[in-house]
């Protein structure tokens, strides 16, 4: 179990990503319950990643609609779609205490997108408890850890 503290309403977690046995990257993800997938910029996962390799290898692709404002014009979902490629992780370590295996992180080579979001595909596998008075978000990979924590608080 780990906890993260809100920064102006934004919760983040530090993660290590392993595509094979080797640690490929470390990055801070924003916990975004509104995001459907976990995603980041390609260069943050690996500086040698090239989009052509993903095209040749027919990697799974998703087009997602970021929010992009152009002057006073209306939003255009098609024009502003961002293309993401799936990268399957052997292991994703969240903090020092949570390890998830066989999860995917979606990467983009589109430079308009440059942050790291932890979306529902991974958040679905975790349990949370929010303490509003401390701005803490407790995260665990099993419910028992959270129950034990609450029991300790009540005692």
């Amino acid at each position: 179990m780990l906890y993260t503290v809100s920064d102006d309403g934004i919760f983040t977690v530090n993660c290590e990503l392993y595509i094979l046995e080797k640690r490929n990257a470390a990055m801070q993800f924003i916990i975004d319950t509104g995001a459907s997938i976990t995603c980041c910029r390609a260069k943050e996962l690996g500086v040698n990643l090239e989009e052509e390799d993903f095209i040749v290898n027919k990697a799974s692709v998703r087009y997602l609609n970021g929010v992009l404002k152009e002057g006073n014009k209306e939003y255009s979902r098609d024009r502003y779609s961002i293309k993401f490629y799936e990268v399957k992780m052997n292991k994703l370590k969240i903090g020092t205490s949570i390890v998830l295996e066989n999860v995917s992180v979606w990467i983009t080579f589109d430079k308009r997108f440059y942050t790291c979001l932890m979306g529902q595909d991974i958040l679905d596998k975790l349990y949370y408890m929010h303490w509003s008075n401390t701005k803490k978000l407790l995260i665990a990979d099993n419910a028992n850890d959270l129950r034990e924590y609450v029991d300790c608080m009540e005692d």
Binding site: A26, D32, I37, N65, G66, L68, I82, R112
Partner: peptide, 19 residues
């Protein structure tokens, strides 16, 4: 790790909102 998640390209950038 790299932190910070703000829009730095102004209107040309996508805000962290993939929904």
């Amino acid at each position: 790790i790299i932190i910070g998640s703000y829009v730095q390209g102004g209107e040309r950038n996508a805000i962290y909102s993939v929904r």
